[in-house]
Design a protein around this nucleic acid. Structure first.
Lengths: 123, 123, 123, 123
DNA sequence: GTGGTCTAGACCACT
DNA sequence: GTGGTCTAGACCACG
């Protein structure tokens, strides 16, 4: 699995993993019943703590995107790609909302904010 | 002082206070040598712990925006509004960048992201 | 870590901690990337509140001597020992200056002051 | 009374007043039964809060250097100049001790400390 | 009245 | 386990 961890960002590692696995599922690169790498294997591959991978897998399962079979492994569950996309958009929305709220708290105009946003998008 | 605390967001109260006081200073609503409300008065007004207000005031002083005189109070320091605006923009930029990175991690196109952003801005 | 708290002096505990950790860093007993004891562990060891240790660690980080990673711990940052020594001397200088000013305010001659100083240094 | 307040120093105003009045008494410029200026008069003269002058006068009386007669004023008490000098030296000693302790906490050698001290004394 | 320090503990997020 | 935030209250120093 091609998962990329960026340690320099201030984004939790487990969240980076969850996001990327969801996207692989949504795009069909991970199909129903596919076997995810074991917690230990992925932890070794990414050079991170197994507990962190476990936390990511737990979150995926709690949201119903995977099923863990005790002693066997973690499998991709049947998923509606549409619904998944909507959920991911909601999460991105929450992050954007946070930035917008901060801008308003800081008295930065919507025009300025938009300029900053578009500059970052292009950069 | 008209400071608004939003408890629903996952943003530390002290950061919300710092942001808003910086903005008041930048916009000239708080002028050099103006007296900030006392730690206890603001805590009472916002119905939060005095320690939380103190943390906000400590941060402001550490960044050089206020001067605290023991037994007297906290005063606005001489400040370059331009510099302050730039710093605040940098902070908002960091938040936006986070959202953009998440979108890309989630395989959401820049066009979709822009749509979401503009919807939120208008809403 | 061999940190000594002196409660009899009127010096804040967190400042005593900061001073001693800076010194350990400056003398190379704490090297870059070394892990400081956890907030709770040091608090337990020194029999003080965890918040007090945290305040010390926050100050060290604000001055750039350490880096804190959420959920992992606090690490020694790359530091210029020369610069650190100069800063510490400046702080001691400020304390000495205070004593000298008091002596002058009290009409105590520089000779007398020097005698007192040397007596204390030897004692 | 020629009392000088230095607001730039981080020394309590009341302490600056107490030190200087003690010195005036010790040097005989204020003699037994001399009348100190009224709290309000001195406060006006020094442009400080009357409460601060009151705190200084209270300290002087608590140490037995003045006597306050209700409704009349504050008078210099009989004082042994020798004893006063010794006490003032003790106070300066305490300040010096603080600086020395900080130097030691910071791992600064006695030689370095002495150098700093003598430089400040000459400067 | 003001700010400065400290406690003892809670609950949360991250590894 | 780790750090991050917050509470409710104490006691002290300064004006």
């Amino acid at each position: 699995m091609k998962i990329i961890i960026n340690n320099s960002l201030m984004i939790p590692i487990y969240e980076q993993i969850v996001d990327q696995i969801k996207t692989l599922i949504r795009k069909g690169e991970l199909k129903e019943n596919d076997n995810l790498p074991s917690v230990r294997a992925l932890a070794r591959e990414l050079k991170i703590s197994a507990l962190t991978v476990k936390k990511a897998y737990d979150d995926l399962e709690a949201e119903g995107f995977t099923v863990t079979v005790h002693g066997k492994g973690t499998y991709v569950a049947a998923t509606n790609a549409e619904r998944l996309l909507e959920e991911q958009k909601k999460e991105v929305e929450a992050d954007l909302e946070k930035a917008i709220q901060k801008a308003r708290r800081c008295g930065i105009s919507d025009e300025d904010l938009k300029d900053i946003f578009e500059l970052l998008l292009e950069g």
